[in-house]
């Protein structure tokens, strides 16, 4: 099984340091949640891990091989990157988008029907992009990314446009994928991150502030400090899917 390691990543934009010496080792078996306030450097880190942004210093290595030396096609096959959203220039159908995702790995084409089924997309497969909802687009994108079975999955706020049911379903899929692959997900919903991720990485100002198992990290007062918010920590009913806070009468 593959692993991904970042060492001393620095990314600057003018005077500002978007990433300021980030090191991280990512292994299969745990869904990693990347959390932090706006501007903490989460997306920049994710793009460096995906090989889409080049750090000014430091390296990212997939199984010991620096991403910068990996052929782009091989990187695309082994690392799946799921952006928050993307704009299509042409009105591809759902099936065509998934097929484009499959085109990066030989043999992935045969998996298209199964992947469409697994993501509840079979009925929509021949609908044009302009005719599907935001949630359906997010599922299509996930299917297009996973159809090549990348060793690493990096997802940037993949549930942002989904209703709660779909979002929980998506998190379940990511968690299942994380069992045998490296999987990192940027999340703004702290509650969801604490509940659905196995490991949390808390970032602020381009640095990793905390990195550890989700339950332990959830108790840290650092989270309250960094977000500038006082969180109530409530044990919840393990039968429940989500938490709904109501004020007491």
């Amino acid at each position: 099984m593959s692993h991904l390691a970042a060492e001393g990543l620095v990314v600057t934009a003018g005077e500002r340091r978007l990433l300021d010496g980030v090191s991280l080792r990512l292994e299969p078996g745990a869904l990693v949640g990347l959390i932090g306030p706006n501007g903490a450097g989460k997306t920049t880190l994710l793009r460096c891990l995906a090989g889409l942004a080049r750090p000014d210093a430091g390296t990212v290595a997939l199984d010991g091989t620096a991403l910068a030396t990996l052929p782009v096609s091989e990187r695309g096959r082994r690392i799946g990157y799921l952006p928050q959203s993307f704009q299509l220039a042409w009105d591809y159908t759902v099936r065509e988008v998934v097929a484009l995702g499959a085109s990066r790995a030989s043999g992935a084409g045969a998996r298209i029907p199964a992947v469409l089924r697994a993501h509840d997309l079979t009925a929509l497969a021949d609908r044009p992009w302009s005719g599907v909802s935001g949630g359906e687009r997010a599922r299509t994108l996930l299917a297009a990314t996973l159809v090549a079975e990348p060793a690493v999955l990096l997802a940037d706020e993949p549930g942002a446009s989904l209703d709660i049911g779909r979002r929980l379903d998506l998190m379940r899929r990511l968690r299942a994928y994380a069992r045998e692959h490296v999987a990192v997900v940027v999340l703004h919903d702290i509650e969801q991150a604490v509940r659905d991720c196995d490991r949390l990485v808390l970032m602020d100002g381009g640095r990793v502030i905390l990195d550890g198992p989700a339950p332990a990290l959830a108790g840290s007062p650092e989270i309250d400090r960094i977000f500038g918010v006082r969180f109530a920590r409530t044990p919840i009913d393990s039968e429940a899917d989500a938490l709904l806070a109501v004020s007491s009468p």
Binding site: Y81, P83, L88, S103
Partner: peptide
Amino acid sequence: ARGLDLLGLGDDQARAFGLD
């Protein structure tokens, strides 16, 4: 053809799908 198709997904996604 394949590269032009991928470009239609946007630069970033085309790169993520392995297109230089």
